[in-house]
Nucleic acid binder design. Sequence first.
DNA 1: CTGAAAGCGCTTACAG
DNA 2: CTGAAAGCGCTTACAG
Lengths: 359, 359
Amino acid sequence: MSPGRKSAAGPRTGRPRQADIARLAGVSQTTVSLVLNGNKAGIAIADDTRERVLSAATSLGYVPDPIARRLSHGQNNILGLYTFTATFPTNVQHSYYPFLVGVEEEAAHQGYDLLLFTSSSTSEAGSQDVLNRIRLADGCLFLGRHVPEETMSRFLDDGYPLVYIGRHDELGTRLPYVGADYVSASAEVVSRLVELGHRRLIYVRENDDAPASMDREAGFRAGRIGAKLRPQAAQVVRTDGADIDPDRLRGWLADGITAIVAEETDTDIALNAIESAARAARLRYPDDFSLALLGNRVDRSAGLPVLSGFSVPRREMGRTAVRSLAGLVAGEPHQENRKIVACQAIAGETVGPPPRSKS
Amino acid sequence: MSPGRKSAAGPRTGRPRQADIARLAGVSQTTVSLVLNGNKAGIAIADDTRERVLSAATSLGYVPDPIARRLSHGQNNILGLYTFTATFPTNVQHSYYPFLVGVEEEAAHQGYDLLLFTSSSTSEAGSQDVLNRIRLADGCLFLGRHVPEETMSRFLDDGYPLVYIGRHDELGTRLPYVGADYVSASAEVVSRLVELGHRRLIYVRENDDAPASMDREAGFRAGRIGAKLRPQAAQVVRTDGADIDPDRLRGWLADGITAIVAEETDTDIALNAIESAARAARLRYPDDFSLALLGNRVDRSAGLPVLSGFSVPRREMGRTAVRSLAGLVAGEPHQENRKIVACQAIAGETVGPPPRSKS
DNA sequence: CTGAAAGCGCTTACAG
DNA sequence: CTGAAAGCGCTTACAG
């Protein structure tokens, strides 16, 4: 039954290969392959040959080896997903999650499996160790705030299909991505605040510089300019989370600040700092000040107020990214490889007119 | 640069292979492989040969092809994950999630990547279509209430490494799994209720029969017997979710039922039906009746009461399953292949003594 | 309509 | 210490 192997190679499990079918059906292995592949390329095959092969395959319980298929054929119907951090965040409310839902949906729709590259705990994220394995997939999606330029550059040079989720122009126009229009959405948040009567606002962001951060800040500035406010009227504050306490918050309000705009990131350091300082200071929004988020809170726990801001269409971005990647893998004619999708405003309940009592 | 291919096969991307290194270093491809593989098997290699090969590899930016490696060597460091439904449920609070967190953690720890088999929307879950692709991975985890016996049987016959998450004895003792001890935990829930003074309870479960359901029901019964209650005192009701309304709920209480025990499943149909009927009937627990869950609510939204019941150590189960699978893949000496882990009681806040007012 | 042959990129006995 | 060769299981020109 199981032919003895004296040679070097291979797993040689007990399961049948095309050669076994060929022997049983009395044809060549080539013919087996032809029959089993649905005979594209329009090659004709005698009906009874086909039947003999098919029934031999069935009786042996043949299952094609995807590995071998890939090696010769060049594709394996696998898309990679590289997240630079754990793919399944321990915190279920993590903002990556909606991306993943969209990615999986569309991958299933397009008939691809998804390979999650898990950064082994022994090697840091983005290490060569992990990145080397990525080519196993036909193409790969990347999800992260930053771009390891050298590695990506090499992938692109090699013509390896990849798509970033999130805008990234670090590599000029070479890196395909699906991003969100944070600039416009952020500017709009400022406009709304100014329309409500706010004249002094502050933008709180993290120290980490990533395109998503820079876009939001650019939008904040654009909104300020569009509203014809002086630069001092809408300043930017960077925080590490620990440096915002109740006193500082009260200080801002005493200075005449009536609205605070927070950056949204996957950690939400800025937002959390403001919310906990406000809680400690017993300040409420929108009564004591208006609070807007440049994004939307993914955490939908009951009890949390709906923050005014905008929704990032993460699920749709995930789907779009998969579609783009599938196109690249299939070698489709070159279309626009950098896509920006619009965000939708969220009225929310944390923004209102400035408080009356002016000091 | 890129050698013209006139032959049939292969992707032949622009990237270098061992043959290119060999040419550059002036050695054979075999030697390249030996050097690059860290030269296990203790074969000695001249230092300067090694260095020439290494530097050639670096200068060409060589990255090994995992596909080819697998085809010859037999392994590719990929574990499959098959969920029979979307791996990333649209509902983030889905009970599968904690399993996935554990699976990913341990896979990363063990140095495996994770391949998610996405059921293409065109083919139903569990179809041959998908199951055929599973062998691409070195081994596979399965997560689901049911077992497609024929397919699993074939995998087992072929010696393909697999582990189920959840107890499944449908295939006798052949199917390796990591399950939870629902029986003991469920019995304990009943004991606690009886200790509190309840003498008439009801168990509400779904129609779907799966080991996880049968274990809970068996535990419910065992608890009743342990408490020396007659069968009529602790009956089982099956629901499709729509057949439980406020009137029926009130009827139960009028009949003298003082405690309701709900099955936990990935859909939580029973629990949701009871909770919404109670809400509509303005009945509260534990004041009007006690409510216990045979499991724990994964949804941690604020405002939801902490249900009395027990916690299923999902994350730990995920990790354990990966460890078992990795052991099978590595061909480790046969250990116990069916593991049952204990659940931990949750006191919760929905259970109390029976209400005073007896009709 | 069918088969012999080459090749995908690698690993591993085997023979110098 | 190094290389020629076979093989993993499949696909795809090419030649009957």
